[in-house]
Structures are given as structure tokens and as C-alpha cells.
Amino acid sequence: MSTKDDILKKIEILITNHFDSPKNAFDFFDENGDKKLSKSEIKNLLQKAEISGFIRGIVTSKLIEGYDKDGDQLISWSEFKAAIDEISS
């Protein structure tokens, strides 16, 4: 199983290589335009980052658990940015 650092690195590579900014990545994966990433939208991001299907669901839950500060089970732009800032540091 991939480690947390490996997974975060894959997400960073995806965003760096395919988007002009983290905000563009967020907007791309926010398929319904509600300014939040749902579990299915996060799974799509992880799939594009080449996180294996076996662990994608677990990682999605852990990302929400770790970064969802308002408890709505969604990731807002500010929560996403906090995760990206942590990855980049």
C-alpha cells in the first residue's frame, strides 16, 4: 500500500504537471460547480493522480477526515488549499 507521502506526492505531481494553479485543479475536479469537492470528485482527482482503485476509497475518506474543517463531508477551496500548502511545504 502506498504511504501518505507517496500519495500526496502523486497529487502534487498531478497538479503541477497538468494545471496552471491549485485553484484551476480544484475548479476542474469540482464537476458540479458547487465550490466543494465531494467524495466522488475527490476519487476522480485520485484516479487522475494514479492512486490505485484498491486504496482510492480509503484515501478519499482519510483526506476528508483530515482536511474537512467544517464537518460537511466535503472539501472547500480553503480546505483544499490547506492540503496543497501542506503537500508543498
Rank of each mutant, 00 (worst) to 15 (best):
K43A: 14
N24K: 15
W77D: 01
F26R: 09
I64C: 03
K9Q: 14
S2M: 11
K9C: 06
L46N: 01
K69I: 14
T60N: 07
I42R: 06
W77L: 13
I11P: 08
K36H: 13
N44L: 13
K23L: 15
N17W: 02
D72L: 04
K10F: 00
K43P: 01
I58C: 03
K35H: 09
F29G: 05
N44A: 08
D85I: 01
I15F: 06
L37E: 00
D20G: 15
L45P: 01
T60V: 06
G66C: 05
K39I: 08
G66T: 08
I13K: 14
K9I: 04
K69S: 12
F29N: 01
I15D: 04
W77S: 02
E50D: 13
D30I: 08
D27N: 12
E79W: 06
K81H: 11
K9W: 05
K9L: 11
G66R: 09
L14F: 04
T16L: 03
Q47D: 12
Q73N: 15
L63C: 04
K10E: 08
S40M: 10
K4V: 11
A49E: 08
D20K: 13
D85R: 09
E41N: 02
D27T: 15
S38I: 11
M1I: 10
K23W: 06
E79P: 02
I42Q: 04
L74Q: 15
S76C: 03
K48Y: 14
F19C: 05
T16C: 02
A25S: 13
G57E: 14
D68I: 05
T16S: 11
Q73L: 12
I51K: 00
A82V: 00
G33E: 10
N32P: 06
I87Y: 05
I13W: 02
S21E: 05
G53V: 09
K62R: 14
K10L: 02
P22K: 04
W77E: 08
K81P: 01
N32W: 07
I58S: 09
I42E: 01
I7A: 05
D34M: 02
D30Q: 07
D34Y: 03
K9R: 12
L63E: 01
E50P: 00
Q47G: 09
K81I: 04
D68H: 08
Y67H: 11
S38V: 11
S38N: 10
T16G: 01
L45D: 01
N24V: 05
F19M: 03
E50K: 15
I7E: 04
S21F: 04
S40E: 13
A25D: 05
S61N: 15
